[in-house]
Design a protein around this nucleic acid. Structure first.
Lengths: 243, 243
DNA sequence: CGACCGATTGACTTGATTCAATTTCGGTGG
DNA sequence: CCACCGAAATTGAATCAAGTCAATCGGTCG
């Protein structure tokens, strides 16, 4: 269960065995959430840190007129709200998109973890990556075509899921509705549908019921202008990007 | 010079007098940057932390096809890259939009500052606000109309500049070209121009050469669906928003 | 089998972009 | 002080792409 966390953090910074054992002990096996269940609501205060162990979730904001914008995906290994005991109120909500296992850590747990220099550094780094993802998403929405936006998102998910062992070299389980995709990339479902069609038509992706296959990852990355360096994973840092 | 930093950090968390004195001593008066000069380039490594003392800058990313997306504004009091010595390479660039004074702090300076609990907390908090701004911008680009996007940006700048004493109750110096606005909100200059016209037509803003006036701030906030709580400033936390 | 949800489609509308002037404005130099 | 220059703002017309609306298709689950 906690292997995804270790996978992710080690992608950022190597960890001593002791730290991994501590992580394992602190995290436990987590609570099960049903599809659609909230992890934290907008405006809530919580002093618990949630960690996604299995399954996927998303961060979102709701507009006064009811529209929704998804502002992040939570994949296994992600710390959802490392800073929750600092904030009085969450400025966004988080919900389970699939059935999830979520660990709930207290401030004491976090202090135990951050007392270890390597862990503290890896956690700090993971927050930097969260911010980097937001910046890249901004570029995505601001300056890319619909198909490139969708392609970029798929590339990002591929890499993030690979790091935690939830994606193969050429694809992953896609449990995203087109409506969610639309609320993520700032388009309508119809446009997302057509963007996916274009990607399929160009042979860049292949979709079966709930699985997505990327026959030529480099080609999709090119189409998406995807440069994995923003994720700051160690491999990506060494490859030096794909654009 | 360092009063803007103190203003900003105190808007997040109260600081003891000693901490303010330390800040003042550490920051000094900064280096002067010319318009357009880079603070840090994309891909650079730096182990200096830059702090905006006077003037304004922006964060940006460049796309392979030459397009640019502005992903943040730097106003007086902002720490530009608090995490720079962690990162090997900046995933985005930062440049001066006006003549600026920028302080350059070393890792030792930062360690001195973060050794003080109140300062550490305020700095940590300022990073949370940076992330919150990115999330709000994502909502802006994804789900708001052109005029609301522009209006929202203006509201945000108003509040952020007010906190550091660079805006009055009803306006501020606007040194933003329409091209920069366009690269910020994901539109073309023409669309931005028309969005501004609509806002002016509705009496929500008034522009003279390099100054923007907002006759009825609440009205503009309403039009922009601007809820200042995401900035997590202490006043805003107490008001409880305007939507 | 029928209800339902999500994906898909087509026709139409709306609104943003593109392109190419034209105007405005601040600053410059005569 | 005024004419001129260049950058930025503004405009209009034509184009094109995304949104809207509404219907249909496909599969899943009671």
């Amino acid at each position: 269960m906690s292997s995804s966390i270790i996978g992710k953090l080690e992608a950022l910074h190597p960890l001593p065995e002791d730290d991994k054992r501590l992580l394992h002990a602190v995290v436990g096996r987590g609570r099960t959430l049903k599809v659609g269940e909230h992890i934290v609501r907008e405006g809530d205060h919580t002093d618990i840190v949630h960690v996604m162990l299995e399954g996927q979730g998303y961060r979102y904001k709701t507009l006064p007129d009811g529209k929704r914008q998804i502002i992040g995906y939570l994949v296994p290994g992600d710390f959802c709200d490392l800073y929750s005991f600092l904030l009085d109120k969450m400025d966004h909500g988080m919900a389970a998109r699939t059935v999830c296992q979520v660990a709930e850590l207290t401030e004491e747990h976090i202090l135990m973890l951050t007392a270890r220099p390597a862990l503290a550094r890896a956690l700090w780094w993971s927050e930097l990556v969260n911010a980097a993802i937001l910046r890249e998403w901004l570029v995505n929405m601001g300056r890319r075509t619909p198909s490139a936006r969708v392609a970029h998102l798929l590339c990002e998910l591929l890499v993030r899921l690979q790091v935690v062992g939830h994606a193969s070299a050429h694809g992953f389980k896609l449990e995203l509705s087109q409506a969610e995709l639309a609320d993520t990339v700032g388009l309508t479902t119809v446009s997302v549908n057509r963007a996916l069609q274009r990607l399929r038509g160009a042979g860049l992706i292949r979709q079966t019921s709930r699985e997505i296959t990327i026959p030529d990852v480099a080609a999709l990355k090119r189409a998406a202008q995807f440069d994995p360096r923003y994720l700051h994973f160690r491999q990506a840092r060494e490859d030096g990007g794909c654009v």
